[in-house]
Design a protein around this nucleic acid. Structure first.
Length: 108
DNA sequence: GATCAGGCTCTAA
DNA sequence: ATTAGAGCCTGAT
């Protein structure tokens, strides 16, 4: 992962890695915190390339509407990401997350 | 080297 | 509040 990664990728996955458990962050937020408010798309593009071995909370990254853009479905017939989110105590309503309740707020 | 596509967001009507 | 168009950047072909 580190090899071939640009400073943008490093900054993004750095922010993603610091997202607290039980909270979610939007692509734009991660990109902005990373220092690249325009790289909202790249966040997804990057996480897409990331494997589960990345041990990064990529599942905590969702779009601005609190919805999951992924199409990956698990045995439960639901989004694989959604399952991970619920596993952290996050409640999904209508397949979406209440950003007002779970969106990650920067402590500092 | 150029072109196309993508897990998005912002601004305008 | 919803719909439509433009913008930014990288990865793959």
């Amino acid at each position: 992962m580190v090899k071939g990664s640009t400073e943008v990728a490093l900054a993004i996955m750095n922010v993603v890695a610091m997202v607290p458990c039980g909270s979610v962050a939007t692509y734009g937020q991660v990109a902005k915190l990373a220092g690249f408010p325009k790289h909202a798309r790249y966040v997804g593009t990057l996480l897409k390339n990331m494997d589960v071995n990345s041990h990064l909370p990529w599942h905590r990254i969702i779009n601005g509407q609190g919805g999951i853009s992924l199409s990956k479905l698990d045995d439960q017939g639901m989004n694989f990401q959604a399952a991970l989110l619920m596993a952290e105590g996050i409640v999904l309503e209508n397949g979406k997350v209440d950003l007002k309740r779970y969106q990650w707020r920067v402590a500092g």
